[in-house]
Design a protein around this nucleic acid. Structure first.
Lengths: 220, 220
DNA sequence: CGCGTCGTTGAATAGTTTCAATTCTGGTGG
DNA sequence: CCACCAGAATTGAAACTATTCAACGACGCG
């Protein structure tokens, strides 16, 4: 998520808004694909449950993000989208997407571009995270989130993340305890302070440095 | 990679074959996108170098696979494709793809589907690997590779992987030593034997069991 | 106000990396 | 054809990082 697809004005002419309360599901894993959703306010997390009963937080969507892109492939939503707070979304039904796609080849192309971009982002980011320490993973996470806030016009240094610690740990493949301890260390090093779900980035440079270093000795 | 896009017959009507010798680059990271490639024989790895000079093996392509899908987004190849052995590929130039896309809406749609599918696969697989032990990662890797060989009509239990140990370790986010030790353990447990780059799966069930377990205590 | 969930902290343990030393292998040139 | 070499793969021991288990404090909601 975090796609620059919102540039396409046609996607914004929608009247159908939906209001979700905290904990409501926008769609559930396994439901057949009916359309994409554009987040207007609030935020959502996407949770995928594997065949081994693990449930993983696989995406986080904030206002301006499109939700449901990964459902196009199988025509089925591959995870459940849960509102993390009071949230409004507008729907882009499948039929309307096809219509628009027929009228505007550019739209279809842009959609492909975005998907392709995502393939690459995820491949690289996750593979990068795979060989990084908890410290580097969290630093990377906050740098990325902060940039998303900035691009959306919010403050990049102070923000509220509706995700719980346990959501964050799931997203990064760590345990809650490790996330908590690492945040405490960041606080001590005056990189980033947090009170509950409010975060305040103090030392952007320092975070970026940690995020780019693997946290391990050899730079390979 | 490993996409079921080869079902589209139009993609196969190509005369331009290219021969690559071991170590040759099909394209290099940063080159602007000129088209996709279909692997006819041999195999390739895709290596992406990050801004921090790490180079990661991000994909492995065998006969029947499409290479270059992740270049569509930025119009630039996001990694270097290197032949692991003598390899032949046929090119699907960008112009031809657009032509075909205009004639056959189904093709464009299928391409989107494949991309969307990949987004989901990578998200889930890598996030799964993120919280798994080396043992589970390798088991998962061999199960996945074996299934790819089976789908392509090769033996799923005996195969030659042109990837070096170091390529595998990079792909899975481990060190060479850990891969080596874990393979040795698999051998002792009579799950999988290997001599150099030839592998022989002895106990499919056992491998699947390891791949699905996280390798950690809590099943969360 | 109490209860449950979320978040934090501590100590012991398990798993991976690191560094160093060999062994094995495939390709090359004599 | 064989010996040799360099890179690849393996193995061992020590250092380090994250997880596990357990206990406790904080917060929000009914």
């Amino acid at each position: 998520m975090g796609l620059p697809l919102e540039d396409i004005p046609e996607l914004h002419d929608t009247q159908t808004y939906t209001l979700l309360r905290k904990g409501d599901a926008l769609f559930k894993q396994g439901m057949s694909f009916t359309g994409l959703f554009l987040v207007r306010s609030g935020s959502l997390k996407q949770v995928s449950t594997t065949n081994t009963d693990e449930s993983l937080v696989t995406a986080y969507a904030m206002p301006g993000d499109l939700v449901g892109l990964d459902a196009i492939g199988q025509n089925v939503y591959p995870g459940t989208a849960l509102a993390l707070e009071t949230t409004t979304v507008s729907e882009l039904p499948q039929e309307r997407l096809s219509e628009l796609g027929a009228q505007l080849p550019a739209l279809r192309q842009q959609l492909c571009r975005n998907l392709s971009q995502e393939v690459h982002n995820e491949r690289l980011m996750l593979r990068l995270l795979l060989r990084r320490t908890a410290e580097a993973r969290l630093a990377y996470f906050f740098v990325a989130i902060s940039e998303r806030f900035r691009r959306r016009g919010y403050s990049p240094s102070r923000f509220r993340l509706a995700l719980s610690r346990s959501d964050i740990s799931s997203y990064l493949g760590l345990t809650v305890e490790t996330v908590s301890r690492t945040l405490a260390r960041f606080h001590r090093q005056e990189l980033l302070t947090s009170r509950g779900r409010d975060f305040h980035i103090l030392d952007w440079e320092g975070l970026v440095r940690l995020a780019e270093a693997s946290g391990r000795r050899s730079g390979a």
